[in-house]
Design a protein around this nucleic acid. Structure first.
Length: 926
RNA sequence: GCGGGCAUAGCUCAGCUGGCUAGAGCACAUGGGUCACAACCAUGGGGUCUGGGGUUCAAGUCCCUAUGCCCGCACCA
């Protein structure tokens, strides 16, 4: 006896085992292989601090589906995994850890000791997420796993930095940056989020130096007054015209500052006069540049006030704000009363650190920057001319919009964990040397003991190199030339700016080509109630919990099936259950197939293959190339299911290749559940129980051939269950490395195309139509049965009355199928109406009518109601169709096949209408 | 302020380049332990596709507009 799957579908029994088998077999590994076409995806490297969350699960599943399909299609399909050091996130976590465990701060520990702890921490936790990825079924090439801080990548980072510096794309300068006081580092613009927070405007009077009234300005940040170096007004603002060029006095501080004219102030906002603090506001910084104003830094790096704030030195910025406002309000100004004129509550838009939610402090600071204007251009062009496409398309706009007004990228971070900036300072002569290796001595003055820059690089600087650094760059390795540019990049829309944009311009700069051809963008996975999942809300659903409960296949299927590309989706228990139930259904159906075929020697001799035959040979058609089975032995239902699968396979392949994965899953679902399980298996059951051994063998063979292709189609989405079932089918080799049912990109014809040309295909088309008719009849009988309240167990006799042009032979063999599926005791077929029972329930279908006769079941009331509905439906349709067809515009302009289809439709609807009316009058007095 | 998205069955959502009698899952109703499956099977009800214009022979699908939600960028006077 062959091995049979266990009665209950329980993914825990095999998922982990199968993953282990795959991994050991080496089938995840991809090499540069000139005999195959390359397909490559680099995995967005998760943070080593991270845990797998639903967003990852979606991201991983999308990539895994694409990789598995391409692997089955015979590509050298590389999926390159890795992890990211995520400097800020990791640094904060490790620092917390040290504080808790050792009671020491980062500073107390020192840089070297801290880094040791960080590496130890990475070794301890860095592998956790990759274990979780394995649970999901991630079929990436673990042999190539990389870490953004490993040796090769360090080299790439230094190389890129030096090259960009040498081309003058990287510079060091004193510029306005965003400072996070909690993380203790500068941030790039992309790392700052914006949020409205409750704040106020305080209106303060700055008295004129000559004793006049002076000017009132509004501010939401009074503590920056210590850094004010001017008051700006618009040159056309009548109110202040007389003040321009005069001096005002900074309240209490006493410093004199000029009133300047600049186009920046908007006369309609506030008082129309703006205090200018060049060191702490980006706009003020620019005004200051234009007017040569001094920059006075009054808030220091830890958000504490500097000496510029006088007695407030050392005080927290917000404490200072409160105290300073009080002092200003209480003070007696020159005109008597306080300097505070008024105060109003208002929502202030404020910059927030994307890591810690702290309000960032804009400040002038000396940092390293990447000059963006030149670099952005090729990245813009690549998208515009189609070398880089976004799926869905709308994300291209977002990408372009960001690049088109991009500002220079601040890349230095005041942290320890990360790639240290390869810049060396000579303290003797002040020379700055940027070099691949640490120089022994100063190139300018010869002094030794150069000091390396203390700062590290933005973690995204190394991520930006990921698509080529992981393939060996800057060496020109075989992998690099074979796999670069990669095929698709899959990521969430939330990191387009951080990552995608930077990879593209970095790749174009370093390699001359966009690092990938397509960006497949997905949305967020939200909680069941539509709220964003977040740690702080604690509403996250752990993918591992879900896998434990429902299996990875169900989770994957739900994630893909859940929503269209690019949009946010909700996690849904209902959908997870539906997916698990679907897996269960497949499991049971397969169990049935295996129980009925596995133990039979004659079947194994048939070596059932794919419905598509060997070698992906589309041109030879589908069912007719089933190996070892003479085509005349295939029955109608066999041809029907094989055509169904074949047509669907082509469709599904197209959907996958255009990244419509949710559409693809929907189609597979219907194919497996509705066509294969609900109809085909039921059609075939009597044959399996029959005595015609030859026919039994054919049925078994088709069952297996069809199931094989269904498993192939479903495998990328539900890899575990399909592989497990495959293993019960006595196949050679594993499903994961078997082959895809269709290979559209080879230019094969589709079976439906063949169908029109080939004699065999006419036979298939006839069989197909017949089975569809059988389904209609069966449904009609079941409907009547339900309506009349007949027990399902009770066999009923039926009469089928055919239309004139519908020959009796077109129902040949259908009687048995109908009999079994509709539980019919006897099928009578009549062409002229003779033999139609006088008293019967009826159903009028296209080109035939079905009568179910049983005296005790007659319910003409119900039938009248049903027919009445049918009549009005048909009336509506007929009116619509007639209107359409009598419209000359339609018949003249619409494509011929559409017009013809409408004519045919009208004919059948009119026909049905007449019959319904006739039937209604027949039963009018019953 | 600039830009983008969404509005379809009670709920959650599909519906590609315009050609439907608008679909699925869940929920609901009725019947059924039928020898793969109760994580099941069968049958059924349920929608003027947000409102208003327009383009077209044809609009859920394209354009404009209104309303209501959502998001990104900018904005700390």
């Amino acid at each position: 006896m062959a091995k049979i799957p266990e009665k209950n579908y329980d993914p825990k029994n095999f998922e982990a085992r199968i993953y282990g088998e795959w991994e050991r077999s080496g089938c995840f590994h991809a090499e540069a292989d000139p005999s195959k076409k390359p397909f490559a995806i680099v995995m967005p490297p998760p943070n080593i601090t991270g845990q797998l969350h639903m967003g990852h699960a979606l991201d991983q599943t999308l990539q895994d589906v694409l990789i598995r399909v391409k692997r089955l299609q015979g590509y050298s399909a590389l999926w390159l995994p890795g992890t990211d050091h995520a400097s800020i996130a990791t640094e904060v976590r490790v620092a917390e850890d040290i504080l808790v465990n050792e009671g020491k701060t980062k500073a107390e520990l020192g840089r070297d000791e801290f880094l040791k702890r960080a590496w130890a921490w990475k070794d301890l936790y860095g592998g956790r997420i990759t274990e979780q990825q394995r649970r999901l079924g991630t079929s990436c090439d673990w042999e190539r796993e990389r870490f953004t801080m490993d040796e090769g990548l360090n080299k790439a980072v230094v190389e890129q930095f030096v090259r960009l510096y040498e081309k003058n794309y990287i510079y060091k300068g004193n510029r306005m940056i965003n400072w996070c006081p909690v993380c203790g580092t500068s941030l790039s613009d992309a790392e700052v989020e914006h949020e409205d927070r409750e704040g106020r405007y305080w209106y303060f009077r700055y008295p004129a130096a000559d004793g006049g009234e002076g000017i009132v300005v509004a501010t939401s940040r009074p503590e920056t007054m210590f850094g004010d170096t001017a008051i700006a007004v618009h040159p056309d603002d009548e109110r202040y015209r007389g003040m321009i060029g005069k001096m005002v006095v900074l309240p209490i501080v006493g410093r004199r500052i000029p009133v300047i004219a600049d186009p920046y102030p908007d006369p309609g906002k506030g008082t129309g006069a703006v205090k200018i603090t060049p060191a702490h506001d980006p706009n003020d910084f620019e005004v200051g540049e234009r007017h040569g104003l001094e920059q006075i830094v009054c808030i220091g790096p830890n958000a504490k006030m500097t000496a510029a704030a006088g007695k407030y030195e050392g005080m927290d910025r917000y404490d200072c704000r409160r105290a300073w406002v009080e002092e200003l309000a209480a003070a007696s100004g020159s005109g008597g009363g306080g300097y505070l004129v008024k105060e109003e509550k208002v929502n202030i838009p404020i910059g927030i650190c994307y890591r810690c939610d702290t309000a960032v402090e804009p400040m002038v600071s000396e940092q390293w920057f990447v000059r963006m204007d030149e670099l952005a251009k090729p990245a813009i062009d690549a998208a515009k001319d189609g070398r880089l496409t976004h799926v869905p398309e709308r994300f291209e706009k977002i990408y372009l919009h960001w690049l088109e007004d991009i500002r220079d990228w601040c890349i230095s971070r005041q942290l320890w964990g990360g790639h240290r900036i390869p810049a060396y300072y000579c303290d003797s002569c002040g020379e700055i040397i940027v070099a691949r290796e640490r120089p022994e001595s100063c190139a300018s003055c010869g002094a030794s003991g150069l000091r390396q820059d203390e700062d590290v690089l933005d973690t995204w600087f190394s991520s930006a190199l990921w698509p080529f650094s992981t393939l060996g760059w800057p060496e020109n390795t075989p992998d690099l030339s074979y796999f670069y540019p990669t095929s698709v990049l899959v990521t969430g829309y939330d990191i387009i700016f951080f990552w995608v944009v930077r990879m593209v311009f970095s790749g174009l700069e370093a390699m001359g080509e966009s690092p990938f051809r397509h960006v497949l963008v997905h949305g967020l996975v939200r909680a069941e109630d539509g709220v964003k999942m977040s740690k702080s809300l604690g509403n996250g659903v752990d993918p591992i919990d879900i896998i434990d409960r429902y299996g990875a296949d169900a989770l994957r299927f739900m994630l893909i099936n859940g929503s269209a590309a690019g949009g946010d989706m909700r996690f849904s228990t209902d959908k997870i259950e539906a997916a698990r139930n679907f897996a269960n259904k497949l499991w049971n159906a397969s169990r049935f197939i295996i129980m009925n075929t596995g133990s039979d020697k004659s079947v194994s001799g048939l070596t059932p293959g794919s419905a598509f035959g060997p070698e992906h040979d589309q041109a030879s058609g589908y069912a007719l190339c089933l190996e070892n089975i003479p085509k005349h032995r295939l029955r109608d239902e066999d041809l029907w299911i094989l055509k169904k699968i074949s047509d669907a396979a082509i469709d599904i392949t197209r959907n996958i290749e255009s990244f419509d994965l949710s559409v693809a899953t929907q189609k597979i679902y219907e194919l497996v559940r509705n066509e294969y399980c609900d109809w085909y298996i039921e059609f075939v059951k009597p044959r399996l129980a029959g005595t015609d051994e030859d026919d039994k063998a054919v049925a078994r063979s088709v069952l297996i051939a069809a199931l094989s292709d269904l498993l192939r189609l479903l495998h990328p989405f539900m890899p575990f269950i399909t592989e497990e079932i495959w293993s019960f089918m006595g196949k050679d080799g594993k499903l994961i490395v078997d082959r895809w049912p269709v290979a559209l990109d080879r230019g094969e014809k589709s079976p439906s195309y063949v169908c029109d040309q080939d004699e065999d295909d006419e036979a298939v088309a006839r069989a197909y139509a017949k089975i569809e008719m059988v389904k209609e009849i069966v449904r009609a009988v079941r409907n009547i049965r339900t309506e009349a309240g007949a027990a399902p167990s009770r066999a009923l006799p039926i009469t089928i009355k055919l239309d004139g042009d519908l020959g009796r032979e077109q129902l040949d063999g259908a009687g048995a199928l109908i009999g079994k599926l509709a539980n019919v005791s006897k099928v009578t077929v009549t062409e002229d109406g003779a033999g139609v029972p006088d008293d019967a329930m009826s159903s009028i279908l296209t080109r035939l009518a079905v009568y179910v006769a049983a005296d005790d079941l007659l319910d003409y009331g119900a039938e009248r109601e049903r027919l009445g509905k049918e009549q009005s439906r048909l009336e509506g349709n007929i009116a619509r169709l007639r209107g359409k067809l009598s419209n000359e515009g339609f018949t003249a302009k619409a494509p011929e096949h559409i017009v013809q289809a409408e004519r045919d439709k009208l004919a059948t609807e009119e026909d049905a209408y007449e019959k319904v009316v006739a039937r209604l009058s027949d039963i009018a007095d019953k």
